[in-house]
Write a protein that binds this DNA or RNA. Structure first.
Length: 585
DNA sequence: GCCGTTTTCGGCCCGACTGTTTTCAGTCG
């Protein structure tokens, strides 16, 4: 990706340091700017190239922040940030990862005890220096000690693929608890964000205390963080689970509120204010005849709250699928009836990227064909690795192997009693220069599907890789660009590239961009998929399955595509087999 | 520091929980 996330982190560092100094309002503005820069579809370095005015086009970025962004891109650092870091040499990310410790506390701990690192913090807590400070006490100090170990371990967000199954277990458990009328997972899990910070779950019940208690007593709860009548938090398999209990009559408003995103909710709230209404977790209220709408939680005439679709309807909006709720124009589209008709699981007819034991897959060709048919696919593409870097154990296929494999696919097709069409493909490596590695053009021409994927030279210091990826999609014989960024969530960052430029090249060349459904990849992701859809590129939702069990990953891919505003017409494998053949020809 | 005017200043989303207070600040979502 671009350098947007990197710039966003710099702005967030400024926000933290200003907050630690007790500066008002600047921190929240820097955070808003950071969030908008991170999600901006164009590469920030390109905007800087165009000039500071282009940077100021980003919402919440004005003269001061834009000039800092320009300074950072041009010189590699922001003088003001370096100055603040000298004044407050705190390892802010590390220290604020301790539950209950934010930037302000970090600032005070530095001023009074000189605490800069997690080690300093632990030492001070163990020596009982913290409880001596004004505004701190024994419990705060113990709390820091209790959470410091966890902070060391879990600074990362969890992959959706790790958290989602746990969220479903929480949901299943709560459904068995007395007096629970309805249960639903909210937050980034419901929006299918690639990573989640915690699990948010909402219950409709009039017995909040008892429900909270039941959760803390659940055998899967390893720790109780807090417990109350409306809010209870536990730890489960190292993830934090936040339970909210609300009146069933206000469930719709609450599930809307707690699904977020925060930016989506702010836009919605501002829309409500424009209409003389107020929206919060308790409902939508007409406050046009109320003197002070801030005077209470439930002031004015209640317009909606029990059901989520009624909440949106009360604001003149269509119901917005959770995957779209990232403040990328969905509220405006919902108000004008222009929301996309998103792709669903039922629209997917096949899988165009799978592996077998011919390369690094676990199962035979026949087993994969049977598995695909059993999963409900009409067709599947066997696409093992070609020779080249990035393949474990040097087990990529040579030209001869590929021709032999074709014969075995023919044999398996006859042998297997499965009603599934088979495409023969290859996953070949995109070299540093955007060339295809190690499979001859003759063989590539004989194959039904050529997937080109980056597997080597993925280093973050490699610089902008847009040219490399554009070269790959423009190659005559390439049909699909596989896992374009090469990222492995929480392990390896995405390569830098300009999603819009890549999308336009892919659209022109008639090459599909992959949404790799493996939860460790989810590559491309929402914002980049949206750039593809807007450019008119075709999207392929593939699993990259290395076993029959992994066909199910497609669910993650479909929801990721939905985050990119994908309709069935945008998606290659939402076509029938003939439709796919038309695209490949 | 940004933004949108009832446009060059005044307000900035807002509520629950905790721990430390004795009316509130900080954190979190």
């Amino acid at each position: 990706m671009s350098r947007n996330a990197e710039v966003a982190r710099e702005l967030e560092a400024l926000a933290d340091l200003y907050e630690a100094q007790g500066v008002e309002y600047k921190p929240q503005m820097y955070r808003r700017a950071a969030s908008n820069v991170r999600d901006y579809p164009e590469a920030i370095e390109d905007l800087v190239e165009e000039g500071q005015d282009a940077v100021e086009e980003i919402d919440a970025v004005g003269d001061a922040i834009a000039s800092k962004i320009v300074e950072y891109i041009e010189t590699g650092e922001i003088e003001k940030l370096e100055q603040l870091r000298e004044e407050l040499p705190i390892d802010m990310d590390e220290i604020t990862s301790v539950e209950g410790v934010g930037p302000k506390t970090a600032g005070r701990l530095y001023e009074s005890l000189g605490i800069e690192t997690l080690d300093d913090l632990q030492e001070a807590a163990e020596n009982h220096e913290i409880q001596e400070l004004e505004g701190f006490g024994e419990k705060t100090e113990q709390n820091i000690l209790d959470h410091i170990g966890f902070a060391r371990e879990a600074q990362k967000r969890s992959r959706l693929g790790d958290g989602r199954p746990l969220a479903e277990d929480v949901e299943d458990f709560l459904e068995t608890v007395d007096d629970v009328e309805c249960v639903q997972v909210a937050g980034s899990t419901r929006r299918w964000r690639p990573t989640i910070g915690d699990i948010d779950v909402l219950v409709g019940s009039t017995a909040g205390e008892a429900v909270g208690e039941a959760l803390t007593n659940w055998e899967r709860a390893s720790e109780t963080i807090e417990v109350g009548a409306t809010k209870t938090s536990i730890r489960m398999d190292r993830l934090r689970v936040d339970l909210r209990v609300v009146d069933p009559e206000e469930f719709g408003a609450a599930i809307q509120y707690f699904t977020g995103s925060k930016d989506h909710n702010i836009t919605l709230r501002n829309l409500a204010i424009d209409q003389g209404k107020k929206i919060n977790e308790y409902g939508v209220f007409d406050v046009s005849a109320v003197d002070d709408p801030q005077s209470g939680q439930r002031v004015g005439d209640r317009l909606a709250g029990e059901r989520e679709d009624e909440v949106y309807d009360a604001l003149g909006c269509d119901w917005i699928p959770p995957e779209l709720r990232e403040d990328r124009g969905e509220v405006e589209a919902a108000a004008t009836g222009d929301l996309p008709d998103l792709i669903g699981m039922g629209d997917v007819h096949g899988d165009l990227h799978t592996h077998t034991d011919w390369s690094d897959g676990d199962e035979t060709i026949a087993a994969m064909l049977e598995g695909a048919a059993k999963f409900g696919h009409d067709y599947v593409c066997i696409s093992d690795h070609g020779e080249g870097p990035g393949v474990f154990g040097d087990n990529g296929l040579s030209d001869d192997d590929i021709r032999d494999q074709r014969d075995e696919i023919e044999a398996a097709r006859d042998e297997v009693d499965a009603d599934v069409e088979v495409f023969h493909g290859i996953e070949t490596n995109v070299t540093e220069d955007g060339e295809l590695a190690d499979v001859s053009e003759d063989v590539l021409e004989e194959l039904d599907v050529v997937i080109a994927s980056p597997h080597s030279a993925l280093g973050v210091d490699a610089g902008d890789q847009t040219d490399r990826l554009v070269a790959a999609v423009e190659h005559d014989l390439v049909d699909v660009l596989g896992h374009p960024s090469g990222r492995l969530i929480n392990e390896r960052p995405a390569m830098e590239f300009d999603a819009t430029e890549l999308a336009e090249a892919a659209a022109d060349a008639g090459t599909a961009l992959e949404v790799n459904s493996n939860p460790a990849r989810l590559d491309l992701w929402g914002a980049a998929v949206k750039a593809g859809v807007e450019a008119g590129a075709t999207i392929a939702i593939n699993t990259d399955a290395h076993s029959t069990g992994e066909f199910g990953f497609v669910e993650y891919g479909v929801h990721t595509a939905r985050r990119g505003w994908c309709e069935p017409a945008d998606v290659l494998n939402a076509r029938d087999a003939d439709g796919v053949r038309d695209f490949l020809d």
